[in-house]
Amino acid sequence: MTDALLLVFPGQEALAQALATACGYEWASLQLHWFPDGEVRVTVPANLSGRCVVLLGSLDDPARKTLPLLFAADAARELGACRVGLIAPYLAYLRQDCRFAPGEAISSRTYARILSDSFDFLLTVEPHLHRYRHLDEIYRCEAVALTAAPALADWLRHEVTRPLLVGPDSESEPWTAAVAARLGAPYIVLSKVRQGDRNVSVSLPDVATWRDHTPVLLDDILSTGRTMAAAVARLKQAGLVAPVCVAVHPILAGDALATLEASGAAQVVSSNSIPHPTNRIDLVPLLAEALRGLIGESR
């Protein structure tokens, strides 16, 4: 068996335990100590000679997490790791994929270069790719992007009767269609107009045909919740039952969850890419299979 070690960011121990059990690997917590001046001390296991070390941690708070991540990767190599990989179920800095206004940094390219310099491989789930078709357009290390469609479809098959899948915008159509195809369910896509970070309006096609279905709003990232809340309101105005809101990555910043609940959503559900009380959909089987492939094992 490969001598692999999962090295886990604080807060993702439950995911680490399940993933380590599924793969037959050891795991340990990454030790972080924050000093009053904002600097951080990072401690990894002292003897990593010949081991494949895989850092595990979603990058939902990238300003706070990225430096400790880089320090840990560098320390692992200094202490003898033969390979250093990263599992970031949620991968940050993919929205800024072009210069939208003069002088803006294209942070997706910079972030990809920084991570590529520190890791031999990267494993993530449902990255927010728009102008990039594949991660290897900007990542130089081996970068694997998994789709969450199988996990979403499995949960919906068991939990929602007669689902009508609803994508929040045109960007969401390919993977909304993929989940719908796995379920054999119909789907529609909304049109979205964003006036600002927290001001969104949506329109929807004729839904009279689907009044006997349960609408399921799907999104890759739930951040402020405003787009999904607006969609919930429009679906209810159209005479459909209260929708189920499903997201892969539950950032749910500030009052986002309260906003969704106040909008009349029947349920808010997410995957365990980021620890959150809404976690219901398990990504461990997908991650375990891909990780074993990256490390070079098969079962």
Rank of each mutant, 00 (worst) to 15 (best):
P62F: 08
P127W: 06
T66G: 04
S29D: 07
Q195W: 12
R198A: 15
H33C: 10
D120E: 08
W155A: 03
E13K: 01
G80K: 03
I114G: 00
A262T: 12
A178K: 13
S49G: 14
S49W: 11
L69G: 07
D60R: 06
L6D: 10
E126V: 00
A229M: 08
D212V: 10
L152E: 09
W27D: 00
L122C: 00
M1K: 06
A253L: 14
L190W: 04
F100I: 04
S203T: 15
Q12M: 11
R83K: 15
T214Y: 11
L32F: 11
L286A: 14
K192C: 13
L7H: 06
L19W: 03
R182P: 07
E13N: 06
C82T: 12
D154K: 11
L217E: 13
R280L: 03
A18S: 12
T214I: 04
V54A: 01
L115Q: 06
P174A: 13
S170C: 03
G167N: 13
D219V: 04
V232H: 07
D212K: 09
E26W: 00
L94R: 13
D3H: 14
S58F: 04
L291A: 07
A262V: 05
L218D: 13
S223H: 07
S273N: 04
A101H: 10
D60N: 15
L19F: 03
T161G: 03
L91V: 07
V248E: 01
N199T: 11
A22K: 00
V160P: 07
R83H: 15
A20H: 03
A73Y: 08
S263K: 02
A81C: 10
N272Y: 04
L164G: 05
D220G: 04
T224N: 05
I251F: 00
D60K: 09
I251K: 05
D37C: 02
D220S: 03
D61Y: 12
L5Y: 08
R83C: 12
I274M: 09
L48S: 08
R280T: 02
A73H: 05
A149M: 05
Y111S: 02
L222E: 07
L7A: 02
G80T: 05
S116M: 02
V125I: 10
V166I: 11
E78Y: 00
A177Q: 15
L56V: 10
D169K: 10
A148F: 00
P36Q: 08
R99F: 03
Y187G: 06
L30Q: 07
I281A: 00
P205C: 06
L70I: 14
Y25T: 00
V241T: 14
A75W: 01
R157K: 13
F121Y: 15
R99T: 11
A288Q: 01
V200Y: 01
L165G: 04
A112K: 03
A20S: 15
A258Q: 13
L115V: 05
A18Q: 14
L70S: 09
T227H: 05
A231R: 01
E142F: 03
T176C: 15
L91M: 11
L19A: 02
T224M: 08
R211S: 14
L156W: 09
A262R: 14
L257P: 01
D120Y: 11
P168W: 08
A290I: 07
A253M: 10
D61S: 04
L283A: 01
V42Y: 10
